[in-house]
Design a protein around this nucleic acid. Structure first.
Length: 760
DNA sequence: GGCGGGTCATAGAA
DNA sequence: CTTCTATGACCCGC
């Protein structure tokens, strides 16, 4: 956020209360060890790979009510309220965020593989100081190109596509997420461009086909090598919104057919074996039991979609192709991946595909259909002890229908009707009855004096603003295109999104008001095992979906730098994110036709925006941190109350399965499973994206140190705010233990480290 | 105006 | 090259 430069007055540099840091005993001693390789080692933690048990979610950072949480009603309010005296903290902290690929719900390296090369300027040297203590955050230092992409590079990344030849054959979690993210970025862009064109009726718009064409041509795909059984990088419960998405990540190759198979050589020579099926309800498959699936063979013009083929009559299915493969598979009893197509509750026309894990065929028989033709039937039974996927969907359905009650439900709607969709409060972990008290309020509250932007003028549209209408000033401010595609999905991250506000004369249902219409998904505040309260959704969430706004009181930065920030776990601070550390948008080079560049994903907030949701807030105050998040934030501005105000809106980075914890990057340093912040108690600026690594004497963990910190004789304070056992790489069945950060908070006293001079 | 059925162009793999 | 498959967006009528 270069825009912050010089705009805030630096706090007094000498008022840093060192005792705050000093009174904590160092648990470990840093011993500098710099092998000083000619090139910086990959700035990435080598976390284990492979799928993790469902239910494990990113570890805990700084948020959410921790420690003494009392009953929902009983908690007295603490803290200094809205404006506490400023106690300036005269050092800065600087962070970078690490790719962590061991998290179930996230499992993506922010999707920026191979896309970063820049080094931040020193633009933040005039930034105001940061809080001390565990909330220490710094401007994010962008991962350098050779490091951020290390996950991909380790197997020889193709810099043009981000996918190496090896990864095209065999993927991993990062590659899968990368491919999916690229695909959807292209698809959103294609949709945006088509939305902007005159709606020529009759033209079939298939953004999915166009996007897959572009990404496949560019070589962006993975797991192209067909295989029986699990596909590396794809986890049970993963959701997809297009058949093409299944194809490009190697889960199910045919773009339309429901049965995927491959020829395998066995005792009896070569024979086809089924590797995956998609149950879409096209045939009358029985989907009652969560572990059993009766699947109908293909062909015979029996499917719902096929009967429209006028020229074809219904006929017997033949034992060939997919049917033959299923027949052979029933004898071999090989693992078959099952993808279940579900109706998308938000878009009746389309489907959501849920990867439900591995099944085997237990029975196969021939059955007469209503129309009298023979069809093949296969009974697939789910292999035991796999994480639930389809079963989760069924549970949610029952909760919604009221057929079964949500276990551990404390409150059906903690917003008391403030949101259009209720937000459940659930604790299945212990007997805590709820988070500490706060007043529910759905948006930000700006104090009267706080004038963050110049008032502007809304558009003059008479109805809904048209997607590409250059006469609409709101559309113009967004670069001539609607920032959202028709279904309300954000197309790209950008410095600022300009929405129509209450003062715009366009219809209230104008598509350019997405963040003002509230969450469309059924959210749930739940007690995590080890990270206090968290937020997740009963509904599947598509990439780019608006989730919620960060609500709370906007605090003047000067006030915030004092005690207010010190004792407040519920802070959103826009200046924490120094820049966008991941690339979510469509690479302009991928689309031929002139497309508006979405190259700039760095936010442009004129003044650091600090929002406290300690006393007043909404569900977003429960969203935990992850360095491998599935949600990002985006500033949005629109007019109301006679001014233009910035709102912080959260959007899904990728498709998020139901009941997966929602997390965003609070912007902190992570090093090998340890969440760290580095600060320097001198007023020198520290900025670099190059990293060096040090190890402590116990070799228990690795610390990455910014190269520019490594000035001989410099004094540092190192603040480790979250610790966790590094998950065993072999024993992946044991979920990583996420320790409560306060139990393990590791604050080293300002520590004299005699760093080697790396410039030699 | 929500639904279900019908229509159309079309993808990847065999 | 053709065939196979049935998707996904849209259209129409009830």
């Amino acid at each position: 956020m270069d825009g912050a430069s010089g705009q805030t007055s630096a706090p007094p540099e000498n008022s840093f209360d060192k005792s705050r840091v000093l009174d904590v005993k160092p648990l470990r001693t840093l011993v500098p060890m710099f092998p000083n390789p000619p090139e910086a080692p990959p700035f990435v933690c080598s976390a284990p790979f492979g799928p993790f048990p469902s239910g494990f979610s990113p570890f805990y950072p700084f948020s959410a009510a921790q420690g003494a949480q009392t009953s929902y009603e009983g908690q007295e309010q603490q803290g200094g309220g809205f404006a506490t005296p400023a106690v300036a903290v005269p050092f800065r902290s600087f962070g970078t965020s690490q790719v962590q690929n061991d998290e179930h719900s996230a499992g993506v390296s922010n999707g920026d593989m191979g896309s970063l090369s820049g080094i931040n300027g020193d633009g933040f040297t005039t930034r105001s100081g940061k809080r001390a203590g565990p909330h220490l955050h710094g401007p994010k230092v962008r991962r350098s190109g050779d490091s951020s992409s290390a996950d991909v590079k380790k197997s020889g990344q193709n810099s043009a596509t981000g996918v190496s030849p090896a990864q095209k054959d065999d993927g991993d979690r990062e590659t899968v997420n990368y491919v999916l993210m690229k695909f959807d970025a292209v698809r959103r862009k294609v949709s945006q461009l088509e939305d902007a064109k005159e709606s020529s009726s009759g033209v079939v718009r298939r953004s999915d086909l166009k996007a897959s064409n572009i990404t496949l041509t560019a070589g962006i795909r993975t797991n192209a090598r067909k295989r029986i059984g699990a596909v590396p990088g794809i986890e049970i419960g993963d959701i997809f919104f297009f058949r093409m998405e299944l194809c490009i990540v190697g889960l199910h190759a045919p773009s339309m057919a429901g049965i995927d198979y491959m020829t395998v050589s066995g005792e009896t020579g070569e024979e086809p074996l089924a590797v995956s099926i998609v149950s879409s309800g096209g045939y009358d498959d029985d989907a009652e039991d969560k572990d059993v699936l009766i699947y109908t063979g293909q062909g015979g013009n029996l499917g719902v979609g096929i009967i429209s083929r006028r020229d074809k009559a219904v006929s017997d299915q033949k034992l060939e192709r997919g049917n033959l493969a299923l027949d052979r598979s029933s004898r071999r009893a090989n693992e078959i991946r099952v993808i279940r197509g579900m109706k998308d509750i938000f878009n009746q026309m389309s489907k959501i595909y849920v990867y439900d894990g591995l099944y085997t065929i237990q029975e196969a028989w021939v059955e007469k259909t209503k129309s009298g033709a023979n069809s093949f039937k296969y009974k697939l039974v789910r292999i035991p002890r796999q994480p639930p996927a389809f079963a989760v969907w069924q549970s949610v359905q029952k909760w919604k229908a009221g057929n079964s009650s949500r276990a551990g439900l404390i409150l059906p709607d903690l917003t008391s009707g403030a949101e259009s969709i209720p937000v459940s409060l659930v604790n299945e972990v212990d007997d805590e009855k709820g988070p500490s008290y706060f007043a529910y309020f759905p948006t930000v509250r700006y104090s009267k004096s706080f004038n963050i932007t110049q008032p502007t003028f809304g558009c003059n549209c008479r109805k809904e603003c048209a997607a590409g209408d250059l006469n609409c000033s709101c559309i113009r401010k967004n670069g001539g295109y609607s920032p959202y595609i028709a279904n309300g999905i954000l197309v790209s991250r950008r410095p600022m999104v300009y929405e129509c506000g209450p003062t715009c004369p366009c219809f209230p249902n104008c598509k350019n008001r997405v963040s003002q219409t509230g969450s469309k998904v059924h959210l749930e505040v739940f007690k995590t095992k080890d990270r206090g309260w968290g937020l997740r959704s009963w509904d599947p969430i598509r990439a780019g979906t608006f989730i919620c706004e960060y609500a709370g009181d906007v605090i003047e930065k000067a006030n915030f730098d004092g005690d207010e920030g010190e004792n407040n776990d519920y802070i959103f601070d826009s200046s924490r994110a120094f820049d966008s550390s991941f690339k979510w948008n469509c690479d302009p080079g991928l689309i031929d036709e002139e497309a508006p560049g979405d190259t700039n994903e760095e936010y442009d907030i004129p003044v650091p925006l600090v929002i406290s949701s300690k006393d007043v807030g909404n569900i977003s105050r429960f969203m935990n941190h992850s360095c491998n998040p599935n949600v990002f934030w985006q500033p949005i501005v629109y007019e109301h109350n006679a001014g233009s105000y910035i709102h912080i809106a959260f959007f899904a980075i990728r498709h998020i399965p139901p009941m997966t914890e929602l997390t965003y990057d609070y912007d902190t340093i992570l090093a090998d499973g340890y969440e760290m912040s580095f600060m320097k108690d001198e007023k020198q600026s520290v900025c670099n994206s190059e990293a060096k690594r040090a190890q402590d004497d116990s070799s228990a963990f690795t610390i990455w140190v910014l190269r520019r910190l490594l000035v001989p004789g410099a004094t540092f304070a190192v603040c480790v705010t979250n610790c966790r056992e590094e998950p065993g790489r072999r024993n992946e069945k044991e979920p990583p233990t996420a320790h409560h950060h306060k139990q393990f908070r590791l604050i080293l006293k300002p520590y004299s480290i005699n760093f080697y001079d790396l410039k030699k």
